[in-house]
Amino acid sequence: MRTISSEQIEQAVYELAKNACLRLTPSCLRALHTAASTEEKDSAAAFALQTVLQNADTAAKEKMAVCQDTGYAVILAEIGQDVHIEGKLFSDAVDSGVRRAYEDFCFRKSICDPITRVNTADNTPASVHTEIVAGDSVRLTFLSKGFGSENMSRLFMLTPAKGVAGIIDAIVETVRLAGSKPCPPVYVGVGIGGTFDTCAFLAKKALTREIGSSSPREDIAAIEREALKRINELKIGAQGFGGNTTALGVSCEWAPTHIAGLPVAVNIQCHCVRCEKITL
């Protein structure tokens, strides 16, 4: 049994939140550079991509948030079952880290009551997903999730007869309907299988993968490739100005499902992928 204090958790979340909001992931930057190089010089799409890359540079240098939508703080925690967390309740420690980082680094507080719309004023609560895993370490993944793209996400309860073709159609249709609204080129996280709720979680988890990574399952990797190809044929392009890159990548995570169903969740991420990880 290993003991980890709630202060360690809080401090780790603080650092993850700070770094996530101030910089894009290396795989996102690489994908944006590639996208920029494929657009016609002087096109609106090229201008958009160059602006976004210049912005990432300015944000990192001047310690400003990459995007003013510093997002819903989403934390995926894989907690080893041989770990004992001492001190505060785990979710309270996470919220404390979020609260301090968003205040100290001038990040926007974007969380509000769904009915009254009154802002909680400190960007808490975070959306915390815990998984109990083997071992004695804690792996924390922080995703700063903007809502312009979250709003464009969809969940489908397909019939099993729809199969792989139905899955790909659902992914492509979601991106098509989103159009210029979610800040394309987007990163598409897909959940396949599970239940209504686990499917949505898998889609979120898929967004924490590196852009350009493939599913270890060849048949799922083939879905990722085909969906990406078809999305880029939509020619929505950067910011919806037309162009060759509508998505930077498609990542699918899967789980077994029920014999009667084929849930597919499509979680859209804008081109500002802000995701940080640490293992304690």
Binding site: F47, A48, T51, V52, Q54, N55, T58, A59, E62, M64, A65, V66, C67, Q68, D69, R108, K109, S110, N119, A121, G148, C183, Q239, C270, H271, C272
Partner: peptide, 25 residues
């Protein structure tokens, strides 16, 4: 250009509150 918040923030030279301070951002 969405997602270029730092560049746009730097292009804002002055900010004055006009109405609805309770709405924060």
């Amino acid at each position: 250009i969405g997602g270029a918040g730092a560049l746009y923030g730097n292009a804002i030279r002055k900010s004055t509150l006009v109405a609805f301070p309770d709405l924060l951002s």
